Simulated scan of single mutants.
Amino acid sequence: MEPSSESPVPGRGAQSRNVPSRFGLAAREADGDWRDHMAALAQAEGGPPVKLRTQVTEERPRTILSFNRSPDIPFDRAINAYRGCEHGCVYCFARPTHAYHDLSPGLDFETRLFAKPEAADLLRATLAKPKYRPGPIAMGTNTDPYQPIEHRYRITRALLEVCLDARHPVTITTKSDRVLADLDLLEELARRRLVAVAISVTSLDPVLSGKLEPRAASPAKRMAALGKLAAAGVPTHCSIAPVIPAITDEFMEEIVQRAAALGIASCGWIPLRLPHEVAPLFREWLSVHYPERGDKVMGIVRSIRGGKDNDPDFFTRMKPTGVWADLFRARFRLACKRAGIGKAKFELDCTRFRAPEVGGQMRLL
Rank of each mutant, 00 (worst) to 15 (best):
Leu160Glu: 12
Leu160Ser: 10
Glu161Pro: 04
Val162Tyr: 02
Val162Glu: 13
Leu164Ala: 15
Arg167Asn: 15
His168Trp: 12
Val170Arg: 10
Thr171Arg: 11
Thr171Met: 07
Thr174Trp: 06
Ser176Trp: 01
Arg178Pro: 01
Arg178Tyr: 13
Ala181Ile: 04
Leu183Ser: 03
Leu183Thr: 06
Asp184Arg: 10
Glu188Thr: 08
Arg191Val: 01
Arg192Met: 13
Arg192Gly: 11
Arg193Ile: 08
Arg193Pro: 03
Leu194Arg: 05
Val197Glu: 05
Thr202Asn: 07
Ser203Cys: 15
Asp205Asn: 14
Val207Met: 08
Ser209Leu: 13
Ser209Lys: 14
Leu212Ser: 03
Leu212Asn: 00
Ala216Lys: 00
Ala217Asp: 12
Ala217Glu: 04
Ser218Gln: 13
Ala220Glu: 15
Met223Arg: 12
Ala225Val: 09
Ala225Trp: 09
Leu226Ala: 05
Leu226Ile: 10
Ala230His: 10
Ala231Lys: 15
Gly233Trp: 03
Val234Ser: 08
Pro235Tyr: 05
Pro235Ser: 07
Pro235Cys: 07
Thr236Leu: 04
Cys238Asn: 09
Cys238Leu: 15
Cys238Glu: 05
Ser239Phe: 09
Ile240Leu: 14
Pro242Ile: 03
Pro245Ser: 14
Ala246Ile: 10
Ala246Gly: 04
Glu250Met: 13
Glu250Lys: 14
Glu250Arg: 15
Phe251Pro: 03
Phe251Arg: 02
Glu253Ile: 11
Glu253Lys: 14
Glu253Leu: 11
Glu254Tyr: 09
Glu254Ser: 11
Ile255Gly: 00
Val256Leu: 07
Val256Pro: 03
Leu262Val: 02
Gly263Val: 08
Gly263Met: 09
Ala265Lys: 14
